[in-house]
């Protein structure tokens, strides 16, 4: 199983200290081995369409209407404003790109 843990960490944007790499790598492998149970399952004899999964369905008619929320003044409610962290002149401070 060619799991390159460092590549995976880069992909998931996770920093894992060098000394923990071996341990977490071992755990990943252990769980992936458990996942291999799926390989024993054959779908032969079963007809499964991609749309025949457990995904919910919703009629187009029941979707949200294109109406802006009432403004705070007219609704009389005060919506608590989220305090975004590290802002400058209303912008969120971000790292360099």
């Amino acid at each position: 199983m060619g799991t390159d843990i460092k590549k995976l960490c880069a992909l998931a944007k996770l920093e894992i200290p060098e000394q923990n790499i071996a341990e977490i790598s071992g755990k990943v492998k252990e769980v992936l081995l458990m996942f291999d149970k799926l390989d024993e399952f054959t779908t032969e004899g079963f007809e499964i369409k991609s749309t025949e999964d457990l995904k919910f369905e919703r009629a187009f008619e029941n979707l949200r209407d294109d109406r802006p929320r009432p403004t705070l003044e007219s609704s009389g409610k005060t919506r608590p404003k989220l305090k975004l962290k590290n802002t400058k002149d209303g912008y969120v401070l971000g790292p360099r790109i």
Partner: peptide
């Protein structure tokens, strides 16, 4: 962009 220490996100 190299001069900037941070970016601004909207």
């Amino acid at each position: 962009s190299a001069v900037n220490n941070y970016s601004l996100i909207d």
